[in-house]
Design a protein around this nucleic acid. Structure first.
Lengths: 153, 153
DNA sequence: CAACGATTGATGACGCGTCAACATCTTGCT
DNA sequence: AGCAAGATGTTGACGCGTCATCAATCGTTG
């Protein structure tokens, strides 16, 4: 095996900072959500597209595409949320394999009550300290990374 | 409640891109690690500081500080790794409450075998497409976010 | 020194996430 | 029409992560 190209000092610092941001931001947001509404990050991620859909009904396949989740993950999460009355499963008229997910009144109430404070938290931790130029760099870099992963090269 | 300051279009795009990078990068790295070595991201995170320590022994408390994990998470992960023979727990001489974590030969072999390809993967997805200027912006932004979370403001 | 509060770590319960396996249904090909 | 291949969703097992709780030990202070 060739001599590996280890990360240099600058790269290692950036990488560690990225991992730390992941960890800290995820848990800070989760704590805020749970404290203010009993919702988790996963709940919130699904409730957003559901609350934006006409009638609050989205086909499972479509919901998965909207949040970028695999079928199994989605199915498990919907199951947990169904138990708590946040969503309901219904049969899909056009495709008997499919499954429709409906936002319940309780689910809508939950996301509407917590969305403002959640966005405020994201703002406080991230966007209030971010210049337009920095936001542009982040956007470019993130999209480039996604491209590189998608094309697997 | 005041009118919430929703994210504008640019901010929402950046935020969605960040969430997507999180998701995709985490799972791409996990897949590579599991495929090439049977290690998970969590295993790898602990094996790095252990392999860098003198004699491969680190006190649990210290290990937690090095990776930024809470005690419970660390204890569970060490338990899982102990079952697979990657690390061993030992008593702590200086502090009877404490616990020392020792890297086993199998653990050292595992990380040494996969580290080069793991770093190569991180490079391919992230750093090979990153200019020095961009890396500097990321570093600044990530540290600022960490500060803002730490000071909880 | 005794008592109290803080630190360290382990544990059980439970939610989150992935993989492999499965059942069901649709689609397209012949 | 009939069949093979693919799409859709669910399930069970298991690893990951957090919270609450507990036990043991340390350190400080009266």
């Amino acid at each position: 095996m060739d001599e590996p190209r280890w990360l240099d000092e600058r790269e290692a610092r950036v990488w560690q900072a990225y991992l730390a941001v992941n960890r800290e931001l995820h848990s800070a947001l989760e704590r805020q959500l749970v404290r203010d509404s009993g919702l988790s990050n996963a709940d919130y991620a699904l409730l957003v597209p559901l609350s934006e859909a006409a009638d609050g009904v989205v086909r499972s396949r479509e919901l998965g595409a909207l949040v970028g989740w695999e079928r199994s993950r989605l199915s498990h999460q919907i199951g947990r949320m169904e138990k708590r009355g946040l969503v309901a499963r219904e049969e899909c008229a056009e495709d008997a394999r499919g499954s429709m997910v409906r936002l319940t009144p309780a689910g809508r109430a939950a996301i509407e009550s917590v969305a403002p404070s959640h966005v405020e938290t994201v703002r406080r931790y991230v966007f209030d300290g971010l210049s337009v130029e920095e936001a542009d760099v982040l956007d470019r870099v993130f999209r480039r990374v996604l491209d590189r992963i998608a094309t697997d090269g």
